[in-house]
Design a protein around this nucleic acid. Structure first.
Length: 931
RNA sequence: GGGUCUGUAGCUCAGCUUGGUUAGAGCGCACCCCUGAUAAGGGUGAGGUCGGUGAUUCGAGUUCACCCAGACCCA
């Protein structure tokens, strides 16, 4: 007996069902590396229109977390889809390298500057540390399958980059955006220097705790409180730093608090005092007062704008409001010295107050300060208290122990002292105004990015770009010791320093003897401040996009939504200052990764999912499909279950590819392809559907709607292919004559579909697309060199079966399936091939179904399908004009094709076969026109 | 507390701009079939009343107000 199974054309492929991505992907990376794929891609697009996605530099510290993965994979999908569009996409990833977190980590290892190491040694260690972190992160980014110029990333601590940061600063200075301002910082009188946040230690200290008063006119008070008091009125305040009183310019209240006018007797004098309602008890206790009367109450905002008088100086103290005022201690009215406190400084700026700082760098008061002229500030407390007493402004004086900042080196208490800092002025040359206007010309994705940006720019204070840090790009300026003016040759100085830095790094400035560069250097102070690291990253557009490979402005910036305040804004401001236009045409933002409950990921809660674990257990392509299937504009939820789902949908796509590959295994497109005019109707229709889907997919990629594209691709595999086309096709592929037109027709279609599909998935499932491509086109270097598939020819003739008719067939097929299922449940049939069906149709339906002639049964995958005029026979369906009767076949099953046909058993030399199988084995093969 | 957003089946997403038939899809799940895509494939089916309350309207997932929960950025 012949083994007819050998006469079948069964699928054959090396694409394993089990993906085994964790093992396979690293090998693919090696392959890509070995053929220098990134270079090949660039070469292949030489001279094409460019697409510039400018990378926001991650901070070079620590292993990448899932948020980094999301960010870089989204960028990678954009890049790969633009390559498919045929564009030249030079993507240079970057790293942000200066700044505090690295300093802190290096301090842990080798100690602080000035203790065990010199500043130069310290900076060198920072550089080495940052490099090691870049290596770690780079390895992981590559493992994710991110394509780009990994051999030459931009690194903000490269000497040339540091030099370009300085040059950018120089341009911004030349254009008049920089101004010097005063801002309070921690100041150590022993160091005679500002301290960085990290150099501050908090220790307990005993200070004075004084209650004191600001006189205020009765008229103002009566108006605010709606009272009519005649005795003297005062605003009560409290402080632990009496020495800051010479710097007092204001009193801050909380606009939402209730304040009372309290009458009591002090030093045998009856007077009225303003105190926050919730603090009356505490305050009176400090004062030792037992009797009081409340004369009136008002809200903090009612006090705003009133002028009190300084306790002992001939000037006023304005009442302002601020949210930092609490009811934890004091009187609820905060003595505000803008030069001596950060919060004081903040509210002072908001209210247009001067930043008064009457203290010199050695910690003594300036000569003009009354009562304490030339006195050391911490020694002046007693004197101030004495003066308060003399002026009748002191209510109480006590000892008070509290946590207080100290110098980490000298262990001495610190003060807040306003010191010169460098600012980019928001009103200079209408910087902020221009920035606000310019965001109208940027394409914000999602759209609300614009309003978010606008509201963040709204109350933007001047940008303080100076830091008192070791590991940062220096602000290479000389300031005249007496006048405070910049050196007249500043512009040249900066350029020369930049050239030195380009050669030797940032130490060049610290080691520089400025007299070698400019005249009269000895009359100038050499600024030792460094730049805010946000300035570093804020000028990456100037340092990276000016390269001849690149283009300014960038087509796209793509970062998390935290960057509206961060990088998007710092880049915008510097670019407006330097170029008058934003550095980007489009800004795309993604949300943050949260857990299944929508909570943010944190180590302490223990809900962190590590990307490393995901690619080690499931593969980078699974992680990538999660990213591609999630709407990144909102928070992105990830959990084990969700990743499992991603893995499931990945498998569906993979198996579809596997089926396609397996069934065109014996197909050579050059010699076997069937012209579109000669293809069966079904194959033509599927090619048409595939083409139209490709347009949608391309469009979704262009609109950055990756989750839509991915869903469509997945649904195509599951519905159009798995549930319909491929299922129907199995009969033709397996049983028809190997090189018959019937079989080659659908193989041509499968070939087109595979070619298209592998490109569609390549931006997302980059590894799998390549794996399949290599099996499909051995010898072709990479799927990632391709553009969208466009080789399917159009049929010139009308299709015999129209789209509308096919859609009707789909509906009919669904109804047939329901009836078949009912029969299956009644155990009439098992597989559909055990059934013969009769379709009772209205004239309209009949016209459609008759077009299929005797090929109709293949559409339903039944052994027989007959069309009759509509009659009340069989089962009713949801479609009007269609009833279906299912009966178990009376005929024998063909051993080869499994269809049960009348003639089986009647063909003498093949008694177990049907007629068409005999034709397929011995004859010319069956002809298929429709399905 | 403020700004910018989000909240539709177990999961991921459509629908909401331009209010109007039984709110859709895929996955998962259940059951069945197949054993020539087989740690695959096919079929059928059960799951939401649209975060909550109220308002506008003949009619609201879709408009408005408030509330709740969550995210980011501030305070």
């Amino acid at each position: 007996m012949t083994d007819y199974k050998d006469t079948l054309n069964l699928p054959k492929t090396e694409l394993a069902m089990k993906a085994n991505l964790p093992n396979r992907e690293p090998k693919m990376l090696d392959y890509w590396e070995s053929i220098d794929l990134n270079k090949q891609i660039r070469d292949s697009r030489k001279g094409r229109e460019k697409f510039i996605l400018h990378d926001g530099p991650p901070y070079a510290n620590g292993e990448i977390h899932i948020g980094h993965s999301v960010n870089k994979v989204l960028k990678d999908i954009v890049i790969k889809s633009q390559i498919l569009n045929g564009k030249d996409v030079p993507y240079t990833p970057g790293w942000d390298c200066h700044g505090l977190p690295i300093e802190l980590n290096v301090e842990k290892k080798i100690g602080k500057v000035g203790q065990k190491v010199t500043a130069e040694e310290f900076r060198d260690a920072c550089r080495k540390y940052a490099n090691s972190q870049i290596d770690i992160q780079k390895k992981d980014f590559k493992r994710l399958g991110i394509f780009g110029n990994w051999d030459k990333p931009y690194v903000t601590m490269d000497f040339s980059f540091e030099a370009n940061i300085i040059r950018s600063l120089g341009s911004i200075i030349n254009k008049g955006f920089i101004e010097r301002g005063e801002k309070p910082v921690h100041w150590c009188v022993d160091c005679a220097s500002a301290l960085a946040e990290a150099e501050v230690e908090y220790k307990d200290k005993i200070s004075h705790s004084i209650d004191f008063t600001f006189p205020i006119e009765n008229e103002l008070i009566n108006k605010a409180f709606g009272t009519n008091v005649k005795d003297d009125c005062f605003v009560a305040s409290w402080t632990t730093t009496p020495w800051t009183l010479p710097g007092n310019l204001a009193l801050t209240v909380n606009k939402n608090f209730e304040y009372c006018l309290v009458e009591f007797e002090m030093n045998s004098k009856i007077a009225n005092y303003v105190v926050a309602k919730d603090l009356i008890e505490q305050t009176l206790e400090r004062l030792g007062i037992s009797n009081h009367k409340i004369k009136g109450t008002c809200l903090g905002q009612d006090l705003k704008g009133l002028n009190a008088k300084h306790p002992y100086l001939e000037r006023s103290s304005l009442i302002i409001t601020g949210d930092h005022v609490t009811t934890e201690a004091g009187t609820g009215i905060v003595h505000t010295a803008p030069g001596h406190g950060l919060e004081d400084y903040g509210v002072a700026l908001e209210n247009g107050l001067e930043v008064l700082s009457p203290v010199k760098s050695n910690g003594t008061f300036m000569e003009e300060v009354e009562h304490v002229s030339g006195m050391f500030v911490f020694k002046s407390n007693e004197k101030i208290i004495e003066v308060l007493k003399e002026n009748g402004a002191l209510l109480a004086d006590a000892q008070y122990e509290h946590s207080y900042p100290h110098c980490w080196r000298h262990k001495s208490p610190l003060m807040f002292r306003a010191t010169p800092q460098w600012f980019i002025g928001m009103t200079n040359n209408d910087l902020l105004k221009t920035a606000k206007e310019s965001i109208e010309n940027v394409n914000w994705e999602p759209e609300w990015g614009k309003s978010r940006m606008a509201s963040m720019l709204e109350n933007r204070p001047d940008w303080c770009i100076s830091r008192q840090r070791s590991w940062g790009v220096p602000i290479p300026l000389l300031v005249h010791k007496d006048t405070g003016q910049l050196h007249p040759e500043t512009s040249r100085l900066i350029e020369e320093v930049a050239n030195l830095v380009e050669e030797k790094g940032i130490d060049a400035w610290h080691n520089l003897d400025c007299s070698s560069l400019v005249n009269e250097a000895d009359q100038y102070d050499k600024i030792s401040d460094s730049l805010d690291v946000w300035f570093d990253s804020g000028v990456t557009h100037a340092c990276v996009l000016n390269d001849s490979e690149m283009q300014f402005p960038a087509d796209l910036y793509l970062e998390g939504s935290d960057q509206h305040r961060g990088w998007f804004q710092s880049s915008l401001l510097t670019s407006i200052a330097l170029n008058d236009v934003p550095p980007y045409k489009s800004v795309l933002t993604h949300g943050f990764v949260v857990d299944a409950d929508g909570k943010k990921m944190s180590k302490s809660i223990g809900n962190v999912i590590s990307p490393q674990k995901v690619w080690d257990s499931m593969g980078a392509d699974v992680l990538r499909s999660w990213i591609a299937s999630t709407d990144y504009r909102n928070e992105m939820v990830v959990s084990d279950e969700i990743l499992k789902r991603s893995s499931d949908s990945y498998r569906r796509i993979r198996n579809t590819i596997r089926f396609l590959l397996g069934n065109i295994n014996d197909f050579d497109y050059e010699s076997d392809a069937v012209e579109i005019e000669r293809m069966t109707q079904l194959d033509k229709w599927m090619i048409k559907k595939t083409k139209s889907l490709q347009i949608e997919v391309m469009n979704d990629f262009d609109k950055y709607q990756f989750h839509q594209a991915f869903k469509k691709i997945h649904n195509f595999c599951a519905n159009e292919l798995g549930g319909f086309y491929l299922d129907i096709l199995k009969d033709r592929l397996y049983t028809s004559k190997k090189d018959s037109e019937a079989r080659r027709s659908c193989q041509t279609a499968l070939y087109f579909i595979l070619e298209a599909l592998l490109r569609w998935i390549s931006p997302v499932l980059s590894f799998t697309a390549e794996e399949a491509w290599q099996l499909h086109k051995p010898g072709s270097p990479s799927v990632h060199l391709l553009e969208w598939f466009d080789e399917w020819s159009d049929s010139k003739e009308e299709m015999t079966i129209t789209d509308e008719e096919w859609n009707e067939v789909l509906l009919i097929r669904a109804e047939v399936n329901k009836v078949l299922e009912a029969s299956r449940n009644k155990e009439v049939i098992g597989s559909a091939l055990e059934a013969d069906i009769d379709l009772f149709c209205s004239a309209e339906v009949k016209t459609i179904l008759n077009k299929f002639s005797d090929e109709l049964r293949f559409v339903f995958i039944t052994s027989d399908a007959q069309v009759y005029d509509f009659e009340e026979k069989g089962d009713s369906t949801e479609l009007e004009g269609l009833r279906v009767a299912v009966k178990k076949t009376k005929h024998d099953k063909c051993e080869r094709c499994w269809h049960s046909r009348e003639e089986v058993g009647e063909i003498s030399n093949h008694p177990t076969l049907c007629e068409r199988c005999v034709d397929n084995i011995e004859g010319d093969g069956e002809v298929r026109l429709f399905a």
